[in-house]
Simulated assay, not measured.
Amino acid sequence: MNFDAIPRQQLPALLRTMPKAELHLHIEGSLEPELIFRLAARNGVALPYASVEALRAAYAFTDLQSFLDIYYAGASVLIEETDFFEMTWAYFQRAAADNVVHAEIFFDPQTHTARGVPMEKVILGLHHAAERAHQELRISSRLILCFLRHLSEDEAFATLEGALPYRRHFIGVGLDSSERGHPPEKFSRVFARCRELGLEVVAHAGEEGPPAYIRTALDDLQVRRIDHGVRCTEDPTLVERLARERVPLTVCPLSNVKLCVFPNLAHHNLPALLDAGLCVTVNSDDPAYFGGYVNQNYLELFAAQPGLGAREAWQLAANSFEASFVADATKAAWRLQLDAVFRAAGA
C-alpha cells in the first residue's frame, strides 16, 4: 500500500474508522463518575465526594498510587452482578463507537472479594455483558483476571482457586496495581501454576518500575505480553530482545501522561518504540480516569507527534491484532478489514 498517498488531514477520520483491538483495558477503570453515583445511590454506598464534578476534579494524579486510591474508592459501588454487567456493557458501547472489533479486558476480583462480593457475581456480570456485545455489537472479547501485586502471593493463589469454577469465562491472568516495590518474581509460583492450567499470562512492567521488571516478567513469569513496558528504552539490549522476540507492548499514552510517566504526549516514546521494530499497541488503560477511550488515545497521540502518519496508524492497528489471544484465521480476517479501510482512504 502507498501510505504516503493519504494526506495528514485525513488521519483523524482514518484513526476513528480503522478496525482495532484493545488489549489493555481495566474494566473497573471504565467506570464513569455518572455511573459511580448512580450505582452508589442504588446500593446505598456513601462516597467521599459531593458530586460528579467534585469526583472529576479529584482526577489530578501525581503518580500511580494517587490514582489507585480513587480507583478503589470508585469500585466500591460495584456489589451486584447487574452492576458489573452495566459497567461492562457501557464500555462495549463506547468500544463499538471507536470501531474496536476485539477487546481483552482486565478485571480485579480481589478489589471486590475483599469487600465480600462473591467471585460469581464479578465474573458472570462481565461474561454476560461480553455475550451481549458479541451478539449485538459484533465485538469479540476475552477476560483476563489480574492479581493485585501490592497483596501477597498467597492471596493471589486464593483468588485463583476461587476463580477456577468459572475457568471457562477467562483466558488468562495478569499482574497490576502498585508496581514500585513489588517485582514480578514476587508471584513466580502462582504464575507457574497458571501456566500449568493452560492460562495465558501477561504482566504490567516497566511503567513506573525499572526495565529489570520487564526482564523478570519475561524470564521468571514467562509472560507473552508486557503491559506498558515504556521504560524498556533505558536498556538497549532489552529493546533488541523485545523486537527480536516480537513481545507485544500494550502502551497507554494518555495514562502515561496522566500518571506523570511522560510530561506530555509530544515527549512520549511510542514513535521510538515503533522505529525500533517493537510490536507496540495503543490502548486506553483506565479511560474514565485518564481522559479518553482508545480512539482518543490515537487522536491525541498523532496530533502531538507530527512524525506519525498513515503507515504508523496501520502498523499500530495491525500490531493490535497480532498481539491478541485469538486464532490466526481471525487475525487474518481483521487484517483484511484493516487493509480495506486504508485502500478506501487512498493507500
Rank of each mutant, 00 (worst) to 15 (best):
V45M: 07
F85L: 07
E245A: 15
R56A: 11
E104R: 09
L15A: 03
H204Y: 06
H267M: 15
G292A: 04
R343S: 11
I27E: 04
C252F: 12
I27Q: 09
K331R: 15
D154P: 05
Q65L: 05
R343W: 13
K258Q: 14
L64W: 01
I214A: 01
L35P: 06
Q135N: 11
I70M: 08
I6Q: 01
S140I: 02
H26G: 09
P236L: 11
C279M: 13
A332I: 04
L221H: 00
F37A: 15
P7C: 06
A129C: 09
A217I: 13
E34P: 00
A73K: 09
T113W: 06
R311Y: 09
I139S: 03
R195C: 07
E208P: 04
A317V: 06
E104I: 02
H268V: 09
I123W: 06
L64G: 03
W314A: 10
E208D: 12
N283K: 03
N43F: 00
D219F: 01
A304G: 06
V100F: 00
F85M: 03
A304I: 05
F84L: 12
T330E: 14
E131I: 01
C279Q: 14
A21H: 03
G346C: 05
Y49N: 10
L14F: 06
D176A: 15
V251W: 00
I123N: 03
E86D: 14
L35W: 11
R168L: 07
D286R: 09
I123S: 01
H150W: 13
E32R: 12
V52A: 14
A41D: 15
R132P: 07
A327L: 08
E53C: 11
L39C: 06
A332L: 06
E120T: 13
E245K: 05
V52Q: 12
H102E: 07
H169C: 12
T82V: 12
Q305Y: 06
V326M: 15
T17K: 15
